[in-house]
Design a binder for these strands. Sequence first.
DNA 1: GATGAATGAGGTTTCATTCAT
DNA 2: AATGAATGAAACCTCATTCAT
Lengths: 190, 190, 190, 190
Amino acid sequence: MPKIVNHDRYRKELLTKCFDLFAQRGYGSLTMRQVAQEIGVSTGTLYHYFASKEELFRQLIAEITEQDILRATDEIEAQSLKTIKERILALGQFIAENEDYFYKQTLLFINFFQQPDLEEQQLVEAVKRSYKRYQEEIMKFLSIDNKAIVNHVSCLIDGLISQRAFDPESVSIKEQMELLAQMLSVYLQE
Amino acid sequence: MPKIVNHDRYRKELLTKCFDLFAQRGYGSLTMRQVAQEIGVSTGTLYHYFASKEELFRQLIAEITEQDILRATDEIEAQSLKTIKERILALGQFIAENEDYFYKQTLLFINFFQQPDLEEQQLVEAVKRSYKRYQEEIMKFLSIDNKAIVNHVSCLIDGLISQRAFDPESVSIKEQMELLAQMLSVYLQE
Amino acid sequence: MPKIVNHDRYRKELLTKCFDLFAQRGYGSLTMRQVAQEIGVSTGTLYHYFASKEELFRQLIAEITEQDILRATDEIEAQSLKTIKERILALGQFIAENEDYFYKQTLLFINFFQQPDLEEQQLVEAVKRSYKRYQEEIMKFLSIDNKAIVNHVSCLIDGLISQRAFDPESVSIKEQMELLAQMLSVYLQE
Amino acid sequence: MPKIVNHDRYRKELLTKCFDLFAQRGYGSLTMRQVAQEIGVSTGTLYHYFASKEELFRQLIAEITEQDILRATDEIEAQSLKTIKERILALGQFIAENEDYFYKQTLLFINFFQQPDLEEQQLVEAVKRSYKRYQEEIMKFLSIDNKAIVNHVSCLIDGLISQRAFDPESVSIKEQMELLAQMLSVYLQE
DNA sequence: GATGAATGAGGTTTCATTCAT
DNA sequence: AATGAATGAAACCTCATTCAT
């Protein structure tokens, strides 16, 4: 028997290591050699686990699509947050803590939609579903069943993240989430 | 004024034709031959007007950075809109009408920040300034001088655009802008 | 206008230059870089004219299939050769003069049949037709309409060429063709 | 006799399994992984028995060179064949029965001469000797001591095999051998 | 100015070979 | 002895760029 390796486990480990790379440099601008070097394996190994650059990216997207915010709720839900204000602020803090991850995820998804060949309907659907799950999570967490408001919140978060991507000093997550909390509590009491 | 005028005019024409291409396919995934073919010139011609692929992209970013919302205000300001509600809705309609442009602009800027070699401070600054101008424009247009609220609005718009990029059916611009108008008018009257 | 080149003419010129190379070294053992270097162009140029290594080989086979012995008859027919003996000897001389070409052609065809992916029925058929034409040419030239005898002659020639390929000193073309002439004239008078 | 015997026995077994593979696909177009897979061992095992791909091929050639027609004579000689005609026809039948083997042997030898690096004089000599032995065998079997005629026969056989390789329907072994028998008996009685 | 053939560095991918198990 | 994961040199191929026309 050769070097014993949990093939699938290692494959996912490699994907994890690719995450930052693809997010920050973009699919088209990355070479397989660079990827291999940066994650510390040989190109041969990379190809042992992924049939092609395209396939590597595809699997990366699939992986992210499966993970995402699931983690979010688990972590916060434990606490008992009664008012919307409290919950919005808690959400805000969570976003702030994971800003980097959210930002990279966004970049990857955008990159994915830019790659015309990759538009396998299956993956596209998975990404869309992932987006929906994300909103449902927000809905559940905030205990709001007004879909428009949930959309408002999720758009705001998206916008915050992408605007901060260009210039982190242009907006403050905390400030915006406080404003949102304020606006929402006023609006909902109406 | 000899040929120089025509030269510059044509250069900008070429840039305009490149806009969609770079936005939709991404800098790294585009080849100069593809660019040339799609905008209907030879590679030679492309190189006659732009010293390199990088330079072409740089000029494209610069061009967009200079244009953008300037157009926006001109078009709407003409009308006389008294209440915030009216102004928000007008803004919303303008966004909706130009959604495609905003989306592509976002893609290009993200792409720009993904290109490590291009981080010329000068251009980065120009892009940041462009973002600021964009917020000032919103501020002026809505006649609001609370910076947090202006940020709220601009983040929301950004988020709307990027969320709709993934799935246009997930959120409605009109609905969101109406909700925003409602929330703002309530909040401000407080 | 760019460097003016008769694209198709140059393509055939390149093929001609490849002929020896592929025959002597074999498809699988040749690299595109080697090919490019040996025929004096860049790899880029090679790919400008042939989409892939496979395609280059395919075209080479097609080219050879089209040419072949057509040349043979033209050259000899001019002479007036009355007896079979004379004609056989003339044929022998022609073979001897073009031994190198016949040998390389054989090698290429063998190589072609060794490449499993290339078995495009179309080309295979073309190669077979080329073989038939070759026999018809012999038939016509020798003025013999006994198919078995024509086959005898063409097999002998084939065998001569391949046996001499391994060791040119093992058999003499002239000697064999004289023997054949002798045998045939005796046999036919019977 | 310890393991060495088994080792050598297994080595030859592996070579036998490689025979078809190398003949049909060619040295250059085969990868060690393919070889390993097709003969049902791991690449590691292959390397345990053969130091390199080249060495494997070398041994294959050596093996074939040693075997070949030895078998032929043994099988036929037993019979008592009086006339040349009978002997030619018996030879023809033997060829027909082993056509596949002869064909593959030819392919391998051609392949061998196409590999420039392998031109170890030693092996080349062995191959040439093998060819000579082949002719001597024919000579002995047919009881003919006219070298030209023996060459005629062996060329004819070679040609038959290679011509049939391209298109088995183009010539019939039996027909040709009968014609040969006829021609020879007439010619020799002269 | 415009063209596209030519270039060769560099990208993606394959493959002989090694080596831990 | 046997396995197959890992390696990296080298294969095939692409692409920004140049340059003759």
